[in-house]
Amino acid sequence: MTLPLRPIKVLFSLSVLIFSLVTFANAQDGTVIHVWPDKVPGETAPKHPAVVTDNNSGNVTRLTDVTDPTLKVFLPDASVNNGAAVIVCPGGGYRILAIDKEGHEVAEWLTTLGYTAFVLEYRVPEKQDGALNDIQRAIRIVRSGASDWKVDPDKIGVIGFSAGGSLAARAGTMYSEDSYSPEDAIDKVSSKPNFAMLIYPAYLDKGENRSLTPELKIDDNTPPMFLFATADDTHANSALVMATALRDKKVPVSLHLLPKGGHGYGLRPGNPAGETWPSLAEKWLKEIIK
């Protein structure tokens, strides 16, 4: 017996919904979630796993050629889970992703503080529009599945490093702009992060005379932000102009500028900046999510 066309469509939609719910419910530490279950918006290359580059200098694993963006789940121990989540955006100049140094290691640190962390493999190289699609969709995925991860949907933030700091800033200031066409019920959920942490951010000063990058629209509804940089970082002006713009709009902002530390240190020991920002961020987070 052949079913009419309408019931087939209904059954298909239900099966997709059930599959999504099962995926969320069964998420374990280390689970990898594909940000786009079907076609990736604006992507012409076929989906495939990210490519690990030959450059592992500084003991850093670098990924490139990301065509199938993913979220990797890092769960805190139930005894310390504080009900908040953070999406981690590694840096790499929008060319590569320093996936361990500015991704997995940061997520593992966050779980020790009680946060559920998600490392985002966003599209590179040179796919800034696609990266914005990816972070907006990622926030919506986490918010949609918040109850399954024992997360408060109003306590979901982002942290980014270098280019990842640029992406986190874009997520925190461009959430009212849908950067892609809605695909399913997940896209009806807000993509606005509740807070953002920008660690040695880059590319935020592309305006005239090194002023704030024009696409970053700051208003009274912009979420609170934590910014950290060092004076000897060539990208340090990004943190300064962002902090000024936030202050001018009376958005809560915490800015820390150390004399030395350079750029790209993550939270590994041996660098004064890398050893300083985590404790400052930890204290700030406690105030934000209380």
Rank of each mutant, 00 (worst) to 15 (best):
G92S: 08
T112N: 10
Y94I: 03
Y94Q: 09
P90S: 09
D100W: 07
A107G: 10
E102F: 09
T111Y: 07
L113H: 13
T112I: 08
G91L: 02
R95W: 04
G83Y: 10
H104I: 04
G91W: 00
P90T: 04
A85S: 15
W109K: 13
I96L: 12
G91K: 03
A84M: 10
A85H: 09
A84Y: 08
V88A: 08
G103S: 12
H104S: 15
E102I: 05
A84N: 02
A85F: 09
P90N: 08
A107T: 10
W109N: 03
V88F: 08
G93L: 07
L97N: 02
N82C: 11
R95V: 13
N81C: 09
L110M: 13
W109H: 12
L110S: 06
V106Q: 11
G114K: 10
L97W: 04
A107F: 05
N82W: 02
G103M: 13
E105N: 14
T112A: 07
A84V: 12
V86L: 10
G92D: 06
G83V: 13
G92K: 03
G103T: 10
G83K: 14
V88G: 02
A85I: 06
C89G: 02
N81T: 11
P90G: 04
L97P: 01
G114N: 05
A98W: 11
L110G: 05
I99F: 05
N81L: 09
E102Y: 08
E108M: 12
D100A: 09
N82Q: 13
V86I: 15
V106A: 07
W109I: 04
T111R: 11
I96E: 07
V106I: 15
V86F: 05
N82E: 10
G103L: 12
V86R: 01
E105F: 13
R95Y: 11
D100I: 12
I96W: 02
V106G: 01
V88E: 00
E108C: 07
